[in-house]
Design a protein around this nucleic acid. Structure first.
Lengths: 406, 406
DNA sequence: CGGAGTTTCTTGCATTCGTAAACTAAGCAC
DNA sequence: GTGCTTAGTTTACGAATGCAAGAAACTCCG
């Protein structure tokens, strides 16, 4: 396996380099051929040939000219907006749809209540695709990407165990692909948000980083690990469950989701319970879902409410310990937090950082960057809608999408 | 950065494929050209060209013929034993030297007391190289690999902070290279042992695995993370310090090597203290170094000694929690333990495994393999001695070593 | 206004790969 | 010895990149 996958063929070269060109255009939005040549190190001739191919495939588009700097003015190249993808983000109560371009811009978004059964949900996706496919004309939507909460096998496209009833071993990809005859991709929402943050987020410092921890806190805690620009899936597509990490062992027997694990100590639920315990039953703790309760706690903390501050501080202490644990092991150089408590970022950032050891001999935490997510709750959606384009940016994917248009 | 590193040139193809061929020969010891073609998927013609080049560079050698299976008998190919590397494993008290071949076999080993200062140690290495270089004749020793305990930057070859006095920012690589004019490589002992286990170890199940945790327990705890056959260094070459992971937070302020961290709970030192506390001062707990004390505890546990068993059990419980924490996050599919307590493997394996959650919905721990290290204390040495050959197995490294012999 | 200088982009040729297929080599079986 | 089978080599061909020459387009300056 290791041997076969590391084999190279001459025709794989073009694919890889074309992917690198597309990546550059995604990051810098607009570049001339000469710019690409300088950035990539490939010769101008090669870039010229690659771009004409990409323009022919309608992946890249010429877009006016730069001002001259004393010579022939450069032609601006951008990602073409021709190809579209349908992104679907399935929450517990709400399912959202969006159309996205190659550059990750969402053209239109729509949302509706999530049907009660998995199959009804898939049927809804199929119906929505039908409508949009007609609206945008022939062949423009090249694929569907779905974001699902829970355990997803992205290789088989099967939702093994969703975070909602009845989502057990649902063959999402095959069902939709057989019905709609277009490529379908499925992945976990945390990983998708992590990838979106890296590929389409606006945090400039992130792009140069080699090992990024993307921490999503909601009613659970999940971590997306981005290594050298690629997400780490693990052999069973189950990596990132650091929420189960035991950080406050009390001697009891170990079990799934036990009392001392990170998720039990630092999730939104934990924060709410902690606040309720402190403030007593006098405050309306039980109203609304967890997320809006957390928002209210944040607002009170910002105003100086002692109970809110204390609850937030304790929660962040545990979150900081958890993140620090992982940094010790992976030597991550960037941590991106996607959490409801980001609302009070100015307060929580130092609370988390306080748990990071410092000192002249501690090298793991040097140059570490801690940032709030730049995409917020849009992350999984953008990641989902980018899934059908993923191969273009990694292998160049010669055969599909092609149509050798023109 | 990401863009430049992902660029491919046509001439990089040969290097990559040659490296794949060498990897195959390393794993299977002996293969015919036809075998290599089948295993790699490359055509027979290409393999023929690659092997003649490798034979010319004295990296591969023909070695007799197989018995015929009805046609022309196959010519056996093996890694050539011509090129040698000097491996140096620096412990606190002892420094060991060994000569290794391309296939990772140690030809001769020698050891002596580690000098008190870093520079005296390097001078000793230089002297030893001089002796061996003469003994083995011209140019046969192509490089030196050093294994050092502590924080090592393998890119710069600088020992940032060794686990012995005065080893602070020692430019090991440059000092030796300038003096001896041959390539010098330095790395951390845990990572080297991890790589050795994967590349040269005899655990067959390990080779197919995608994410391996190599856990080394001594007076501290370090973890080597092997992803897709390559070790994870992290941006500052500081990954693997899971020994600092907090697993039993007691509310105290977080600090380096604090009381609740894995290393404090599951290292050899912790086991000794635990046993001493249980058995009281009646037993000779203080005699010998930690490692031999741990060996004695293991022997007693095997014989059924209650205190020894309890101490071992508690220690393994923590070790199991720590390993489980990492598996949740990385979804590793193999764990290799290199520890003094491996002596009582039959006892400790179930103690560790007891901390691994199981159940139909737990996918992270499915198909997980837990094994004792097959190389034991030899690991770092083998890894060190393999360092000078590393590039051959990854990029094919056309220029160096070459000499275009013959 | 026109030529020199400059920067951008394209095109033809040499080189380096791998594949496919023809071809040589070497053993077995009858 | 003749066919059959497997192993290994060689040659023609297609696909990439780099290099260098040339075409294109704009500025500057006399």
């Amino acid at each position: 396996m290791t041997s076969k996958s590391s084999i190279l063929r001459p025709d794989a070269v073009r694919g890889t380099n074309a992917a690198a060109v597309l990546q550059l255009l995604r990051r810098y939005d607009s570049l001339s051929r000469a710019d690409i040549s300088r950035q990539s190190g490939l010769s101008e001739g090669t870039i010229s040939r690659i771009t004409t191919e990409l323009i022919g495939r309608r992946l890249v588009r010429e877009d006016g000219a730069e001002n001259s700097t004393g010579g022939r003015p450069a032609t601006r190249l951008r990602l073409d907006q021709h190809h579209l993808a349908l992104g679907v983000d399935i929450h517990k109560w709400e399912t959202r749809f969006a159309i996205s371009t190659l550059s990750g811009k969402l053209l239109e978004a729509e949302s509706c209540r999530t049907p009660s059964s998995p199959m009804a949900t898939l049927a809804l996706v199929a119906k929505q695709y039908g409508v949009l496919s007609k609206k945008y004309g022939d062949q423009r939507i090249v694929g569907i990407g779905l974001s699902v909460r829970g355990l997803v096998n992205s290789r088989t496209g099967v939702v093994e165990l969703g975070n909602f009833p009845d989502w057990v071993r649902v063959p999402v990809r095959d069902w939709l692909r057989n019905r709609l005859k277009i490529p379908v991709y499925v992945d976990n929402n945390v990983r998708l948000a992590a990838i979106a943050e890296f590929d389409y987020g606006s945090l400039v410092e992130i792009h140069n980083r080699h090992c990024i921890l993307f921490v999503m806190v909601d009613e659970g805690i999940g971590v997306g690990i981005v290594l050298e620009g690629k997400i780490h899936y693990g052999p069973n597509d189950a990596a990132g469950e650091f929420g189960q990490m035991v950080i406050a062992d009390r001697g009891a027997g170990q079990q799934h989701n036990g009392p001392g694990c990170l998720e039990q100590l630092a999730s939104n639920t934990a924060l709410c319970e902690r606040y309720a315990a402190l403030a007593g039953s006098s405050t309306p703790a039980g109203s609304g879902d967890t997320r809006s309760r957390v928002r209210r706690i944040c607002q009170r903390a910002v105003k100086g409410d002692g109970f809110a501050l204390q609850a937030l501080s304790e929660t962040c202490r545990y979150l900081g310990i958890g993140v620090a644990n992982v940094i010790w092991g992976l030597n991550a150089d960037a941590v991106v937090i996607n959490a409801t408590i980001n609302e009070a970022w100015q307060l929580i950032a130092p609370m988390i950082e306080r748990q990071f050891p410092s000192g002249p001999e501690i090298v793991n935490f040097r140059q570490l960057v801690l940032r709030p997510s730049s995409l917020g709750s849009e992350g999984s959606m953008i990641g989902a809608a980018a899934l059908p384009f993923k191969n273009l940016f990694t292998t160049g994917e010669r055969s599909r999408t092609a149509k050798t248009g023109a």
